[in-house]
Amino acid sequence: MSHLAETIQAPIQTTPAHDSSVKTSTDLHGKVGKTIGTPFVDDPRMTCRDVDVFYGEAQAINKVGIDVGCNEVLAMIGPSGCGKSTFLRCLNRMNDTVASCRVEGEITLDGVDIYHPDIDVVPLRARVGMVFQKPNPFPKSIYDNIAYGPRIHGLTGTKGELDEIVEISLKKAGLWEEVKDRLAEPGTGLSGGQQQRLCIARAIAVGPEVILMDEPCSALDPIATAKVEELIAELRTQYSIVIVTHAMQQAARVSQRTAYFHLGSLVEVGSTKQIFTNPRHHLTEDYITGRFG
């Protein structure tokens, strides 16, 4: 593959913007060579090694290796269709619900392989929660939305304990003051931003270790977005957060580390500051400077 990469290096490097001594390039199919930067951390919460994802015959993710640290926000950016959402959904095995999807490689949570046949997805998803692109509260009351997870996992014995979990979760999500007087009203009646924070509270209620967020603010207005971003910053103290986003400013604001995906490959990982000020890969630089994507 390396000689293949060299053969087409020339035309790309004719672009004067790139310094060929530092920046690697892509092969004929746009596949990217080795990830550059620092994908692995000490004391990781989750580790991913050589992860391949296929939808039927088509390969969506190609040999991705990355760690998720404790108490950090890891942002995943990249152009549409680069596989960042697919990869995110591998982390709590949401891709299991897609029949044609096949995941290879190793993903661990606290050192345990989550794709091991002995692992049941139900407790896994309680430990790795997920917040989706569009707010998707259940058509139930606000209270029942939060109580859903604790109920199905049998986390509480009494009504009092459940009330407490609901209150704590809503407080952590910064929604308590806004909804405490109308817990019995339907969750679908809240505004978009409130609904998204409700979904975050719902994920928190089952006590996860990692929260996956798939473009959580793309359906929200700027004020609601600011509130969710504030919330993410607070949640970092207790959870590991992996966020997929299209808004680069958002990645810059909320995350400590940033990973840049391109056509199913992980191109570059580094501290958010380094990625946005001094990208080492020309694809990363092109993307964050708005040259494509």
Binding site: N92, V131, G149
Partner: peptide
């Protein structure tokens, strides 16, 4: 998805 994501 929301329900599966909570481990249901």
């Amino acid at each position: 998805d929301g329900s599966y994501g909570l481990g249901a």
